[in-house]
């Protein structure tokens, strides 16, 4: 007679199966993300100056020394200001524009919606590196931009811009608006279209439909996209690293480029770099908290 499965046997098997299924992913995740995040905070409070991680020079905790260092560095504020410009363009440029385009396509105000959507989303899928070099060459003194301006203003002469962030902000708007278009379209399609039709039959105008039906239904999505835009803007690295490298004279630097320079350019200053990344996380959480607070205070009429 075969051995009967007891309840305890099945429990044990269940337990073993659980850990077999979970552990491979969890161990990699801990090693690659969770532990390094904690380690980063530790590093930002230490005097580790490179060299062997264990068994080299002893590492001491030095408190908030690097944070004080950071807050007295003018380049930190310059980078932070540029990040805020990007946040601004994302929240008040990409989101409204993406919403406008999504709305036009969703309401069927034009034909060939699929074509428009495909084309407008296209810049988002291409490697940021390709985009960055492309625009760098486009805006270069010997690139196409001065030529293009001369078509309209023959007297134009290329000079060093007083607003070096403007081209960067333009490219950011150009590149990511399509992403918000996609997010809004997907969520607009979830709205029950019979409600909109009923309102239209009852004589509601296009703008009334938008104001009283569509916008309230999307308030949650608007907050989500705002959070996405804020955290994405604070993290932006690739495009600026490739397009300007933070130059000229750090005037287009952002926090992540500033941090990269401290860690990997010249003599490594790992603790300072990790203080920067920790501050970035804190700012990001603060801004996200602020967004949620604004929503709970003024939004949420559903």
């Amino acid at each position: 007679m075969p051995r009967m499965h007891t309840l305890a046997d099945s429990r044990r098997e269940q337990n073993r199966a659980y850990w077999t299924l979970v552990l491979p992913g969890f161990l990699i995740y801990i090693a690659v993300m969770a532990f390094p995040t904690v380690f980063s905070i530790f590093l930002s409070l230490s005097d580790y100056a490179g060299g062997k991680l264990f068994g080299g020079n002893p590492v001491h905790l030095v408190g908030l020394k690097w944070y004080k260092n950071l807050f007295s560095d003018e380049y930190f504020y310059l980078a932070l200001k540029n990040n805020m410009y990007i946040v601004f363009v994302s929240v008040f440029g990409q989101i409204p524009l993406g919403f406008f385009l999504a709305y036009v396509l969703y309401r069927g105000l034009v034909r060939f919606a699929d074509f428009f959507q495909t084309m407008i989303y296209l810049p988002t899928v291409i490697s940021t590196v390709v985009i960055g070099i492309l625009w760098k060459s486009f805006f270069a003194p010997y690139g196409a931009f001065p030529e293009l301006v001369r078509l309209f203003n023959p007297a134009y002469e290329y000079g060093i811009s007083n607003h070096p962030m403007l081209p960067v902000l333009f490219v950011i708007l150009w590149m990511y608006t399509g992403m918000y278009l996609i997010i809004f379209i997907a969520n607009l399609q979830k709205i029950d279209s019979s409600i909109i039709e009923a309102a239209r039959i009852d004589g509601a105008s296009e703008s009334q439909t938008l104001r009283y039906i569509i916008l309230p239904a999307l308030s949650g999505v608007l907050v989500t996209t705002a959070i996405l835009a804020i955290s994405g803007s604070l993290k932006s690295f690739d495009l600026i690293f490739v397009m300007t490298g933070g130059g000229p004279a750090n005037r287009t630097s952002v926090l992540s480029v500033y941090m990269f320079d401290k860690a990997f350019k010249g003599a490594p200053r790992y603790p300072l770099a990790n203080a920067i990344s920790t501050v970035m996380v804190i700012i990001s959480f603060l801004l996200i908290g602020l967004t949620k607070w604004v929503e709970s205070k003024f939004g949420g009429r559903e």
Binding site: Q14, L43, S231, I276
Partner: peptide, 29 residues
């Protein structure tokens, strides 16, 4: 399983972690 809440929760926190924070530690590790 009683560990699910903790384990799943730690993965979800991972959605908020940034590449910047792990870059230097990862390089060292």
């Amino acid at each position: 399983h009683k560990a699910t809440k903790f384990l799943h929760g730690s993965f979800i926190i991972g959605l908020l972690l940034t590449l910047q924070s792990i870059m230097v530690p990862l390089f060292l590790i």
